[in-house]
Design a protein around this nucleic acid. Structure first.
Lengths: 142, 142
DNA sequence: CTATATGCAAACCATTTGCATTGAG
DNA sequence: CTCAATGCAAATGGTTTGCATATAG
């Protein structure tokens, strides 16, 4: 589903279709880089020099509420955003912060976790930490 | 291993043993609540009314660097700290923010993740999200 | 028209930093 | 004595909020 189609659907929920939102969502859907709000801002500014960071955050929060994107917050300073809203796993570089998808079948652990803890489990998150191939080369020992 | 013993060991690494540090570490080792820095601050203030938040953060960062505690940062506003430095899994309440240990054997997925992504994997993190028993009662539908 | 979104600036708030003073070793 | 740790206050930085203006519907 592309950005235009997705934003058209949202119109039914009282959400307005603006060119800034289209640009933000298009970027999130086409990139695999899991960008930060700042990076999205820099990218959108190329087409809309007057756009503000506030608009980026406004749109990201709206898309998050409607479950069309994922916010990834690792211990880092800033969150990253993922245009793929389905649960999937990530590998995070401890050195450069890069986030890469790790596509594998989902684990079925939620029933077991629910039984063990008494929580009603709605989802889970799995991330791996390490050095990406690039950082591995640059600091072979560490 | 208790707080005093642990801090004595750290002396060999140029770390000073102060009563504030002892109180912070003792609290982290005895509680199962995964407290925030602010909560640790409030607790330590009972014994040391003059302690400052800066000292809490200073100590937490020192303990983290020496891998005696874990910093848990979920999307929340503030981090939580865990006196158990071994990798283990957590269940987080989406409503009240409570974090509970979920003790189960570790998953052996790192080799597979490394093969699939080219990263040198050093660790992984697994968290479950949902409603804790208390919040479940209070908002049965959601 | 009218209400939501935008752009801008100020506010927030968890965490960090700077610095004079204290105190551990 | 000496240097790391403390307490305090100011600074930082990502994110949110407030408000006047612009614009989607």
């Amino acid at each position: 589903m592309d950005a235009v189609e997705l934003l058209r659907q949202l119109k039914g929920k009282g959400v307005r279709f603006t060119p800034q939102r289209q640009a933000i969502l298009e970027f999130l859907l086409e990139t695999k880089s899991h960008p930060t709000a700042e990076e999205i801002f820099q990218h959108v500014k190329e087409k809309f020099p007057g756009v503000s960071l506030g608009t980026i955050y406004n749109t990201l929060n709206m898309l998050k509420e409607h479950r069309h994107i994922l916010e990834l917050s690792y211990g880092d300073t800033s969150s990253r955003f993922d245009g793929n809203p389905e649960n999937h796993y990530h590998v995070v570089c401890s050195n450069c912060g890069k986030v890469v998808d790790y596509d594998r079948p989902l684990l079925h652990l939620e029933q077991e976790a629910s039984d063990a803890t008494g929580f009603r489990i709605d989802g889970h998150r799995l991330e791996f930490y390490g050095l990406c191939p690039d950082c591995r080369k640059r600091q072979p020992v560490h």
